[in-house]
Amino acid sequence: MRVSIFTSCVVDLMFPNVGIAMVEVLERLGCEVDFPEKQICCGQPTFNSGYEKKSKATLINQLEAFENSDYVVGGAGSCVGMLREYPELLKDDEVYYPKAVELAEKTYEFSQFIYRVLGLTDVGACYEGKATYHRSCHMTRLLGEREAPFVLLDNVAGLEMIPLGHIENCCGFGGTFSVKMPEISEQMVTEKMNDVINTGADTLISADMGCLMNIGGKFNRDGNPIKIMHIAEVLNSNVDTSRIQLSSEVAN
């Protein structure tokens, strides 16, 4: 099974370790992984800022970058959600609409791909500690994924998962939202930080580094210790390969 990695700008430029973890996990699970170098931003920042026509060139670039991929797996629910929106954004384009539909149908968020496509619940990871999980807005609102990350984390040996209060609340990042409305964003991330603190967890996990960067930044500014980890990093920790039961499709 061939899988193309879609890193997202934040991972590519600021958290390359997350991209490396994604590759190592997927290869361990039997996938043939590549990285199309033509890929760039998903187009979400410019599109959400109102530059719809100027964003089209970015969308087309992504369609061409992943045209020959069997599957596209991304490390950010928000960016994957944007790729899934391409058919709606290009619905009036006779040339690129079919390509947009094809890309949307083969694109998955990292944990979603492991659980929904590979059919795995245990990837053999081991992580000692107490953690809580921040559920990013785009994972639930655009992708409708409320299960995959929790199932995979529940099967990480040694990891105690503690429920996060007000898990449905946004962290206040929202890409350009935090820039356009910093005062409101600050209040939202403060509430999120306090909810995390109330769990007593030593590690905060999410499937979106944008959220983790925002929440982790608030913790740092306030002098509160917390370890932030993308779910790929957790699933790549101290792996016991004997626990991994590959699906027949991948094993063959």
Rank of each mutant, 00 (worst) to 15 (best):
C79M: 04
L235Q: 04
Y71G: 02
Q44A: 09
H134P: 09
E27T: 07
L153M: 13
I231C: 05
S178N: 15
I5V: 13
C41H: 05
G124R: 03
M209T: 15
Y51Q: 10
N220T: 07
P225C: 09
Q44I: 10
L120F: 02
E27D: 02
V151L: 11
R221D: 10
I114D: 00
K38P: 07
N194H: 02
D208M: 08
L159R: 10
C170K: 03
V11T: 09
V123W: 00
Q44F: 05
F6T: 01
L63N: 06
T203K: 06
S8V: 00
I40W: 11
G175Q: 08
A125L: 15
V25E: 04
T241Y: 12
C171L: 10
M22S: 06
C42H: 08
M229E: 08
D154H: 13
I167N: 06
S248I: 14
S185P: 08
D12Q: 09
V3Q: 02
P16K: 09
C126A: 15
E168I: 05
N155F: 15
S4W: 02
D222H: 07
L143D: 02
D222T: 05
V3I: 08
V196N: 01
P36Q: 04
K54W: 11
K56D: 14
G129S: 12
E105H: 04
D154S: 15
K38S: 09
D122V: 01
V10T: 13
F173H: 13
L63F: 10
E191F: 14
A131I: 13
K53C: 10
S4D: 12
L212H: 03
M188C: 07
A251G: 00
V250F: 06
C126I: 09
F47N: 04
H166S: 13
T132S: 11
G77H: 00
N214L: 02
E24S: 11
V33K: 05
Y51W: 12
D154P: 06
A76G: 06
K91R: 11
F66Y: 14
G216N: 08
V117P: 01
D240M: 00
L63H: 06
S178H: 15
C41W: 03
V80I: 14
C211F: 13
C126K: 14
G174S: 05
T58P: 05
R135D: 09
A207V: 14
G165E: 14
L29F: 10
L26P: 01
K99E: 06
D122K: 01
A104D: 12
R141Q: 10
C211W: 01
G119E: 11
S136N: 14
K54Q: 15
E128R: 10
T203Q: 03
A148Q: 04
E94P: 01
K227V: 15
R141S: 09
S55F: 07
K192G: 02
V11A: 03
H134Q: 12
S55L: 03
A125V: 12
Y133N: 06
H134T: 08
